[in-house]
Simulated scan of single mutants.
Amino acid sequence: MENWTLSEDILLLEGLKVTPKSSIPAFTLLLLIYIFIMVSNLGLVVLIFRTRSLHQPMYLLYCNMSINDVFGATIIIPHVLRDMFISNSERYIHYMDCVIQAFCVHVYGSTSHTVLMIMAFDRYVAICNPLRYATIMTDKMVVKLSVAAWVAAFIMVAILLGLTIRLSRCRRVIPNLFCDNASLFSLSCESVLINQIYGLGYTVVLLGSSVSSVTLTYLKIAAVCLRSKNKMVNSKALQTCATHLAVYILLLISAFIIVILHRFPRLSDHRKVATIVGEVVLPALNAVIYGLQIKVIRQRIMAVFHSKGGLMNWK
Rank of each mutant, 00 (worst) to 15 (best):
C179K: 00
A182I: 13
S183H: 06
S183P: 03
F185K: 00
L187V: 00
L187S: 06
C189M: 05
E190S: 05
S191C: 03
V192M: 06
I194R: 06
N195S: 10
Q196W: 13
Y198N: 09
G201E: 09
G201I: 05
G201M: 04
V204Q: 01
V205M: 13
L207A: 12
G208A: 04
G208D: 02
G208I: 07
V211E: 05
T215A: 10
T215P: 01
L216F: 09
T217K: 00
T217F: 03
Y218W: 12
L219K: 08
V224E: 10
L226K: 12
L226N: 09
S228K: 06
K229G: 15
M232Y: 14
S235V: 10
S235C: 09
A237V: 07
L238R: 12
L238Q: 11
L238C: 11
L238Y: 11
T240W: 02
T240A: 10
C241N: 11
C241V: 07
C241D: 06
C241F: 01
A242R: 11
T243P: 05
H244S: 01
H244F: 03
V247D: 00
V247E: 01
Y248H: 02
L250P: 12
L252G: 03
I253H: 00
S254H: 04
S254A: 14
A255Q: 12
I257M: 08
I260V: 06
I260E: 02
L261G: 03
L261A: 00
H262S: 12
R263P: 00
R263G: 02
P265T: 01
P265R: 01
P265G: 01
L267V: 02
D269H: 10
D269G: 07
R271C: 15
K272V: 11
V277H: 10
E279R: 08
V280W: 12
V281S: 12
A284I: 13
L285Y: 09
N286R: 03
V288E: 00
I289P: 08
Y290F: 13
G291R: 00
V296Q: 10
V296Y: 03
I297R: 02
R298S: 10
R300M: 13
I301L: 04
A303G: 11
F305K: 02
H306R: 13
S307T: 14
K308S: 14
K308C: 14
G310A: 12
N313F: 15
N313P: 07
W314Y: 15
K315Q: 14
